[in-house]
């Protein structure tokens, strides 16, 4: 069986600066794959390249058999790949409901209303605030909205860029539980995190990125137990 997402020898640069220096990884259907690494490792760059917002210098990105490197960014979500970006990036002047509906922009089917209800079931606070501008929300609420918005496209695979960034431990737990819920509901997940503990605990597979290269990979458990990861990311020595 071939992987749902297969990234091979990906190189991405900003002008002369190489941010991603030839990485390969894959995500199979039903998995939660974690990509961890410190600041500036190239995690966001990788996700933005998969989504078509950046174009690679070389390498390939194949999602469900389609080469994404030539697909315009706005056509990628339609293929079943959603991206909840770093910093949440909700539309601040639009209401919660408008944000969610924009998540379903690529769809024309009749199921959008039903999925709106599903998003509200997943995060009841969003329903309470459905007519409020999203810019007034706390970080945790914005993260829930960003995830709900991404799910509104009914993705086969969801990419999350640091969903726990800046959240309280409680809220972080909430978000991570949701990741497991979404997986159980059949969504494949590529999770980018600095919080290695939380990300690896749930991961079927993990990759450690350091200055543009993958330096370690294995199952979530293997990485959690590896000395290198414990030293570098879990503050143990």
């Amino acid at each position: 069986m071939s992987a749902m997402l297969e990234v091979k020898d990906l190189v991405v640069s900003y002008g002369k600066i190489k941010a991603v220096k030839g990485i390969s990884f894959s995500v199979d259907e039903g998995e939660v794959v974690s990509l961890i690494g410190t600041n500036g490792a190239g995690k966001t760059t990788t996700l933005r390249t998969i989504s078509g917002l950046l174009r690679p210098v070389s390498g390939s990105i194949v999602f469900k058999g389609a080469d994404l490197t030539t697909v315009p960014a706005h056509d990628i979500v339609q293929l079943g790949l959603a991206h909840s970006p770093e910093g949440r990036r909700i539309f601040p002047k639009l209401t919660v409901e408008e944000n969610l509906l924009l998540g379903a922009f690529s769809r024309k089917d009749k199921g959008i209303r039903g999925d709106l209800e599903a998003a509200y079931d997943l995060f009841p606070i969003l329903q309470e605030r459905r007519t409020q501008p999203a810019g007034t929300f706390s970080g945790g609420e914005q993260q829930m909205l960003a995830m709900g918005r991404a799910m509104m496209s009914r993705p086969k695979m969801l990419m999350l860029d640091e969903p726990s960034m800046g959240l309280s431990p409680l809220m972080m737990k909430r978000i991570m539980t949701t990741v497991s819920t979404l997986q159980a509901q059949g969504t494949t997940i590529l999770l980018v995190e600095q919080n290695a503990q939380a990300a690896l605990k749930r991961a079927t597979k993990g990759y450690v990125l350091e200055v543009g290269r993958i330096v370690l990979s294995g199952t979530g458990r293997e990485l959690l137990e590896s000395d290198d990861v414990r030293k570098a990311y879990l503050g143990e020595d």
């Binding site: 960014a73 706005h74 970006p85 639009l94 998540g103 918005r149």
Partner: peptide, 11 residues
């Protein structure tokens, strides 16, 4: 409000 994120929505 945010052109890049708009593209992620399929716009």
């Amino acid at each position: 409000q945010d052109p890049d994120t708009a593209r992620l929505m399929g716009i």
